[in-house]
């Protein structure tokens, strides 16, 4: 995979004094959907935050389409064409649904039209004037994903989009991620929901204690379960 879109090498990260990532290596090719699996506190969310420059300090290398991101401020990282959907969803209460949707600036041409986002997530259209945080959890998640599709970002970092949602909504999010793959998006997905990850991803990285312990292609996931059991709470 010399043509990796995102190539992370020996990534370390700190929040203040606490050392959260201890040398993470990840490669993602364009068009792939890749998950980070692992227990709470394994460093999955910190890896996404470190890519976006949202940790206190970081070291190592994060190369995106050949550009080194490690020294850049988070707005300049996003400008390279990366969309971030945080774990807590980050919907703004003082903005209505449309304002939330239109908030992230266009990074590159080629993003989805608002009409296409409304086709993917019809609820967002119906509730356009509601304050963002008056939406249900599922709708907030759709809004959090929808708003980064508009920007033209080609790499999407999604932090646990299935968390706390009803099964039918999780299925809809799953369909959306598969649809995004067919449209050529590259996705790095943090998941605790192992079964959900299996339905959307090409490959899985397994994390523990701020390190990548293993990499498993999706086809081998089931057969590797015994080996991975110690890292996952299946």
């Amino acid at each position: 995979m010399s043509d990796a879109m995102l190539k992370i090498q020996k990534l370390e990260a700190w929040y203040g004094e606490s050392h959260v990532l201890h040398g993470v290596d990840i490669e993602i090719a364009e068009g792939e959907v890749v998950t980070l699996l692992g227990r709470n506190g394994a460093g999955k969310t910190s890896t996404l935050r470190a890519i976006m420059g949202l940790v206190g300090r970081r070291a190592g290398s994060i190369s995106f389409e050949g550009t080194e991101l490690i020294g850049l401020r988070s707005d300049l990282i996003a400008r390279k064409g990366i969309g971030y959907c945080p774990e807590e969803r980050g919907i703004f209460a003082s903005l209505d649904v449309t304002e939330n949707l239109m908030l992230p600036p266009t990074l590159r041409p080629g993003g989805l039209e608002v009409a296409e986002i409304h086709t993917l997530f019809p609820n967002l259209k119906e509730r356009a004037r509601s304050p963002g945080t008056k939406l249900s959890g599922g709708e907030q998640q759709m809004l959090a994903i929808g708003r980064i599709l508009r920007t033209g970002a080609k790499l999407l970092l999604l932090d646990e989009p299935s968390e706390g949602l009803a099964p039918v909504i999780v299925q809809q999010i799953g369909r959306t991620i598969r649809e995004l793959k067919t449209r050529g998006f590259t996705v790095l997905l943090v998941e605790q929901n192992f079964r959900f990850a299996q339905t959307v991803a090409d490959r899985h990285y397994v994390m523990e204690h701020g390190r990548v312990m293993d990499m498993v292609p999706n086809a081998e996931l089931t057969s590797s379960l015994d080996r991975l059991n110690e890292y996952l709470s299946v």
Partner: peptide, 11 residues
Amino acid sequence: ENAALVQAFGI
């Protein structure tokens, strides 16, 4: 509300 996230959107 959340300046860090707004910045991570590229603003």
